[in-house]
Structure formats: C-alpha cells, structure tokens
Amino acid sequence: MESCAGPYQDGVWKIRVELPDAYPYKSPSIGFVNKIYHPNVDEIATTSIFCNGFSYFHSDLVNVFEVFLPQLLLYPNASDPLNGDAAALMMRDHAAYEQKVKEYCEKYAKPEDIGATQEENSSDDELSEEEYDASTDDAIAGEPDP
C-alpha cells in the first residue's frame, strides 16, 4: 500500500489481512507488516488496526485500502494511541514527530524493501513449487497395504 500526502507520503507498506470465519460480522485483522511510526499502530506492527473502529462500511476491503488506511495516515489520532511514544512525540514536538516518521519511511518502507520483507516473513505453509516437489520426494510413506 502506498501512502498519500503528509509525512508518510514516501512510504510503501505491506499490509497483512486475515479474515475471520464470521467476516463481515466480525472485524478482520489488518496490520502493517513492515515497521511504521504512528500513534494508532502498535509498534510490533502485527496488531489489528481496527480495534473498536470496525463497521460494515469497512467490511468492503476496497474501502479499507482506499479510504480507511489513507485516512489513518493523513489524520493520526494522538489522543487514542496504540503507540504511546509516537503519540507523546506528536503532541509535544510535531516537527520531531514528522522527522521520525520520515526516518521510519526511509528505513523500513521503501518500495524495494517490500519484497525483502515478504521473503523474510514467509512461512512454512507457503512453499514454492520447487520446495514443495522436493519436500514430497523426501516424505516417508506409510506402511503398504497388505
């Protein structure tokens, strides 16, 4: 996801989306995979960003990516933080906050880093075709049927 105007404008983030079985009646888990310095995003970057703000309006994932996330980046809310350090810096020294955001964008949210982030976070469940073929060749078969 590329960001819009504001201090996040030069950043590109990989977004993780997990839909619960009860979706759209239950909130999806949506989080930033690569690090972002933002008052309303947990520093670990794996926590759901919706918390109690999920509504049926957001249930259409297109709205999440075209409306909710850009608004989150444009209008951070320091009065309801998940990242207390970012919120405190934003309220105390807005220029220093914006500088730190830009540093995070440069360090963690460059377009070329998205591919590296994906490779670093790939799970055993996501094997390439070659890895899958190799793993099945090495599998031990069960006892033959009599």
Score class of each variant (00 low, 15 high):
E18L: 13
H38E: 04
R92I: 05
I30C: 10
I49D: 08
F54G: 05
N83S: 07
N52T: 15
G53H: 14
P39D: 03
E18F: 09
I49C: 05
C51A: 14
Y25D: 13
H58G: 02
L73H: 01
M90L: 03
S59W: 02
I15R: 04
N63P: 05
F50P: 05
K35F: 06
G31D: 04
D10A: 13
V67Q: 10
A22Q: 14
H58N: 14
F65S: 07
D80Q: 11
F68S: 08
W13G: 06
N77R: 11
D85I: 11
A88S: 12
A88L: 11
L74Y: 05
Y23K: 03
D60V: 11
A86Q: 03
C51F: 07
M91H: 00
S55T: 15
E18D: 10
I30Q: 02
D85W: 01
P39L: 00
D80E: 13
F68A: 12
N34A: 11
Q71S: 13
G84Q: 10
Q99F: 00
G53W: 03
C51P: 08
D10G: 12
L82D: 01
E98V: 01
T46R: 12
D60W: 02
I36C: 11
Y25T: 01
Q9H: 10
P70N: 02
D80A: 13
Y75S: 13
Y23C: 08
D60S: 12
D10F: 06
S55H: 01
P28V: 00
I49T: 07
V41N: 02
H94R: 15
H58P: 03
S79K: 08
H58T: 04
W13S: 04
Y25N: 15
H38P: 11
N52P: 02
F32W: 05
G31W: 01
R92A: 10
F65T: 02
P81R: 08
L74R: 14
H58E: 14
N52S: 15
G6A: 03
D10Q: 15
P76V: 00
L72Y: 05
A87K: 05
P7L: 00
F68I: 02
F68R: 08
K14A: 15
I49F: 06
V17H: 07
T46P: 00
L89P: 08
S27P: 06
K100F: 03
I44K: 13
S29C: 09
N52C: 04
D85G: 12
Y25V: 04
Q99S: 15
A96G: 11
L72S: 08
F54W: 14
R92Y: 10
M90G: 00
G53E: 14
L19Q: 02
S27M: 10
Q71K: 13
I36G: 04
N52Y: 09
Q71G: 00
L89A: 04
E98N: 09
H38A: 01
D60G: 06
D21L: 15
E43P: 15
S29R: 12
E43Y: 04
K102R: 14
C51N: 14
S59K: 09
D42F: 01
K102S: 09
P70W: 06
P81A: 00
A45H: 09
K14P: 00
L73K: 06
G31T: 00
